[in-house]
Simulated scan of single mutants.
Amino acid sequence: MSAVQTSRPVSRTMSSRDWTMLLLLGAIWGGSFFFARIAVAEINPLTLVLFRVAIAAAALHVYLAARGISFRSAFPLAGGFVLLATLNNVIPFSLIFAGQTELGAGLASVLNATTPFWTALIAHMLTVDEKLTWNKIAGIMLGIAGTAVMIGPGLLAGLGGPVWAKFALVGASLSYALALMVARRFKGVPPAVVATAQLTASTAIMIPVVLLVNGPDGLFAASAHVWAAVFALALLSTAFAYILYFNLVASAGATNASLVTLIVPASAILLGAVFLGERLEAFELAGIVLIGLGLVTIDGRLLPKR
């Protein structure tokens, strides 16, 4: 055997546990639309972002203390967490907010669903263990197509928006993809600490932004049911969800974790049908089937990997 060995770049596969976490995360983030829909009726979107990350960060600090997990491991990596917070929260939230002032929710969902595509490309260039395969390419394309089909007429109605708004949504997807590359740097840090550090940094960034843009007047003026939605959004869809998310990044890799953006619109529609009695249209069912087929193709268990 020679002293120097060459290793061929490999592509990560997902275990059954990874798929369970991915589907659960998609359901949780799909359900966040319910809470946000209630909260945004009385709270400015930027202020809602601040409350979401601040309450989640506080809850996670309590969680770490209760579990006896030290937050000190985050201090030497503070700069990296500020970068992660900027790329994973501040920039995409702001771009999505700006883009959705001009675009319909349907087109915004499809553009957001391109996150796995950008993540796969960037990971292929920057990593050795997340290389592109034909299964990934075909599965991601099927997932994006399924999202477009699922939105149906809502997508066609929103195609006429300005170009800058579409670039804003694509920019948000690129920001999420770059954030996943940054998240890979924290492999030795417990996922709960990563989630806490990111949300703490996001809170520190959002406080001056909100005070500068909206001012302090009426900051806490909201109804009781709206505050209930805010806490649900912060505790379930942010604090718990990000622990799950960073566990998934550590276990399955950045590209596989990004697949959650394909599941979120489908889960939101299914939850609406189950809990709100909303009618499922044929095109929505067809889109969900396409997304499922895309995920099966990426998994490679039913179809041979290429």
Rank of each mutant, 00 (worst) to 15 (best):
E284R: 00
F93N: 13
A179Y: 07
T13I: 09
A192L: 06
I207M: 14
K187E: 14
V49C: 12
L111V: 11
W19L: 08
L174V: 12
A241H: 10
L244I: 13
V10C: 08
A286M: 10
G294Y: 01
E284L: 00
G300F: 01
G171Q: 03
P9Y: 13
G31H: 05
I291T: 03
P45W: 06
S109W: 00
A234D: 09
L290G: 04
L111A: 04
G300R: 00
G26F: 02
F231Q: 00
W29E: 07
R17N: 11
L199K: 03
V170Q: 05
A286C: 05
Y245M: 14
Q198R: 06
L248F: 01
A56M: 08
A168N: 03
N88V: 02
F186S: 05
I91T: 09
S175R: 05
S32C: 03
I69A: 10
R17Y: 14
I96M: 07
L84S: 05
L60V: 06
L111Q: 08
V213K: 14
G215V: 12
G292R: 00
I38K: 12
F240Y: 13
T127L: 13
L111M: 12
L111Y: 02
R184T: 00
A65L: 13
S73K: 09
V4N: 08
A120R: 07
G171S: 05
L46R: 13
A239K: 10
E284P: 00
G218A: 09
A65D: 08
A221E: 11
A120W: 02
L285E: 00
V209C: 04
T133M: 08
W19R: 07
V230N: 04
I55Q: 11
N112P: 05
D299C: 08
F220H: 04
V128L: 12
A3Q: 12
T200D: 12
A286Q: 04
